[in-house]
Design a protein around this nucleic acid. Structure first.
Length: 378
RNA sequence: GGAUGGGUGGCAGAGCGGUCAAAUGCACCGGACUGUAAAUCCGGCGGGAGGAAUCCCUACCUAGGUUCAAAUCCUAGCCCAUCCA
């Protein structure tokens, strides 16, 4: 069994484990940095290794448009192409159904996108997405789903959710490479009954899946809704397989998700925010562009073990870099933000295994009073 | 000394009788960002009152003037740029 989850400890619904992949074991809970276009923006693979990243994401749709999966496959698949030797997960393009909503039309066959690059029509079906991902060579391949918008409900949501399931069946007909596996994605929008139905049907359709993802969350809805839907979705998933909550990434989100049994998550937030001068700290974060940091000699966060903080780069210096539009500002802040979440995952894992999960959570929310320990309440 | 052009908000730079507290960009002060069309986007940016619509005051080099009305027209002065002596 190439892919396998070994659970090392639990606390309530929270779990810590080891997820074996052909590129090595991933310790969970695990945050996965996003490298849409075969690069985690502003970060080298060396940085990724140093900060303790275990697995990263890339994107089917964007790489299909440029440079094309053929180029990447011939240059050594994603791993060889971008010189990253850890496990890689590719998203299927399903998120672009949501994020590029104005540029696409959906039919039963698939989705026709207008390329953001040149406006050319680009058709992606479940089969095409799988074939692209097969060529890209990621270790975890995501099913091609439809990520519905927050407002979708009733018959339209019903049809969307059902279509994602039909598409899953079609995804499963494409044979992947031996080092690859597929994660199906649970949908169901902001509808509890549809979440349950989607999760059950997903498991029934792909019972042997190595892992399962919960999608369609953190797309603009209230946090209370996010986690109510997550709880419902996760409760229907097998406990012995990794659960991947797609698209979250604030420190508090990680706690909330892990507390509900999530093992893996990814998010553009740490890198995007970093490029916009927003950095994490235990009290809720800093905007390094703010005037008050102009002459601040302190590192972003006292005691942080990220390269940026360890090297002694001051807030004042980072303020200057971001003000000046210097590329190093984005780099140093990205390193900090990614390491922050990665370290938090290590801490969460240790706490769960050591039976300190409840204490860990209490300490986290004590330091960050603005975040609610339970987002589903209020 | 003469000729011509010009002096507008922190800077650059529109406006050239009313709809102007004055376009736009930059700077400045904040905010947002969650499977990346993002090193992006949004708001504010003379002073004062008010939740707000709004109201009051002071403003387009200086001083006068024309006009119901002037950043815009006239006169004088000061300053700047270029050219000629």
């Amino acid at each position: 069994m190439t892919f396998n989850l070994f659970i090392e400890g639990t606390s309530g619904n929270a779990r810590a484990g080891l997820f074996a992949t052909p590129r090595g074991a991933v310790r969970t809970p695990c945050f996965m940095p996003v490298g849409t276009k075969a690069t985690v923006k502003a970060i080298t693979p060396r940085d990724l290794r140093e900060m303790g990243a275990q697995i990263i994401l890339s994107n089917t749709f964007h790489l299909h448009l440029r440079p094309g999966e053929g180029v990447i496959e011939r240059l050594g698949e994603l791993h060889g192409f971008m010189r990253y030797d850890g496990p890689i997960l590719t998203d299927s393009g399903g998120f672009q159904v949501f994020s590029l909503a104005e540029l696409r039309t959906i039919t039963e066959k698939g989705v026709t996108f207008k390329s953001p690059l040149d406006g050319a029509a680009c058709f992606i079906s479940p089969e095409i997405s799988m074939k692209i991902q097969k060529a890209l060579g990621a270790n975890i391949v995501m099913a091609f789903d439809e990520c519905p918008s927050v407002g979708m409900e009733g018959a339209v949501l019903e049809e969307s959710t059902a279509r994602t399931l039909r598409w899953l069946e079609r995804c499963l007909t494409i044979q992947l490479k031996p080092h690859q596996c597929i994660f199906p994605i649970v949908q169901g929008g902001m509808d509890a009954a549809k979440r349950v139905a989607s999760a059950r049907a997903t498991v029934a359709t792909a019972p042997d899946s190595v892992g399962f993802a919960v999608g369609g969350l953190a797309v603009g809805e209230e946090r209370s809704m996010t986690y109510r839907m997550l709880e419902i979705s996760v409760s229907e998933l097998p406990t012995d397989r990794p659960r991947y909550m797609m698209g979250i990434g604030t420190p508090e989100d990680l706690i909330w998700a892990v507390d509900r049994g999530v093992d893996m998550f990814d998010c553009v937030l740490p890198t995007r925010n970093a490029r916009n001068a927003r950095v994490f700290d235990p009290a809720g974060g800093l905007n390094l562009r703010n005037a008050k940091f102009r002459e601040d000699p302190a590192p972003i966060m006292e005691g942080c073990d990220c390269h940026t903080c360890r090297e002694g780069f001051s807030r004042g210096y980072l303020h200057h870099l971001h003000r000046s539009g210097e590329i190093l500002g984005g780099i140093l802040a990205s390193i900090h933000n990614l390491r922050y979440l990665l370290r938090q995952c290590e801490e969460m894992r240790d706490a769960i295994i050591a039976g300190r999960w409840e204490d860990y959570k209490s300490a986290f929310f004590a330091a960050f009073p603005k975040a609610s320990p339970d987002p589903t309440r209020g």
